[in-house]
Design a protein around this nucleic acid. Structure first.
Length: 234
DNA sequence: TACTGATCATTC
DNA sequence: GAATGATCAGTA
């Protein structure tokens, strides 16, 4: 993060993990309004019509590749950026979107090559205050965490993924709900409930269905925070 | 009040 | 339309 100056600040993509982490650490403690001012961006009145604003602000500040491409945010170093909205107690307020659920083209798919696994292989978590009572521009960024799943964590994520994808490939889309999965869940991911994409029904026929995404439950990210930020409690 | 299902903005 | 960034908001 630069000292206060008057020229536009245009961060470039980090060349290494350590460079990315160092830059992220410089952002810790900043308020969103301060960061927005450095990047010469307006602060929305609230997030109702700007739900992705915080994440996109951080992408810009850290030099992530913009856009909606299905790639890691920092492609050449294979790191995904995730903001983690925290309540007043320092706990995650929301689940974390991971990626779209592939409803077709899943023949021969394995965990080892699954997009979920690749996305979660290396994540830069950026905690950010998200109490509704705090004006958006006043909310502070927390200390980042560069994270990879531990083997025991990945085993459970894998189990969740395999159970969920088993329902997808057998066409039991009507049974798919957010209630399945220990840490990973599948929920709607669409502009609205009328949105449609292709999937398979139980008879193996192509059908129209609601687009869905993989999400990490707050139980997972809460545990992650405890383990990495509170040694005495972890 | 936690959680699930719904929704918003933008890019490709 | 499908992917990204997520939070909203009704209800169990």
């Amino acid at each position: 993060m630069p000292e206060s100056h008057r020229e536009p600040w245009l961060p470039s993509p980090p060349l290494s993990e350590s460079e990315l982490l160092a830059q992220a650490r410089r952002l810790a403690g900043l308020r969103l309004g301060e960061l927005a001012r450095l990047l010469e961006q307006p602060v929305p009145r609230d997030l109702r019509s700007a739900k992705g604003w915080v994440g996109q602000l951080l992408e810009t500040a850290l030099g992530a590749s913009a856009g909606a491409r299905p790639e890691p945010d920092f492609r050449h170093i294979g790191v995904e950026l995730k903001t983690l909205p925290l309540n007043a107690r320092g706990e995650p307020r929301e689940s974390t979107y991971v990626c779209t659920v592939p409803l077709t083209g899943n023949t021969g798919l394995h965990w080892e090559t699954a997009w979920v696994r690749r996305k979660l292989a290396r994540v830069l978590w950026m905690p950010v205050e998200a109490e509704p009572s705090i004006p958006l521009g006043e909310r502070r960024l927390g200390m980042p965490l560069l994270w990879s799943p531990e083997p025991a964590e990945e085993a459970i994520l894998r189990q969740d993924w395999e159970e969920l994808m088993e329902m997808v490939v057998t066409g039991r889309l009507d049974e798919l709900s957010a209630r399945h999965g220990t840490w990973l869940q599948i929920r709607p991911k669409a502009a609205n409930a009328r949105a449609r994409c292709h999937g398979y029904d139980a008879e193996g026929r192509l059908t129209e269905t609601l687009p869905r995404g993989f999400y990490l439950r707050t139980a997972f990210t809460r545990r992650l925070l405890i383990r990495h930020y509170r040694r005495n409690a972890g």
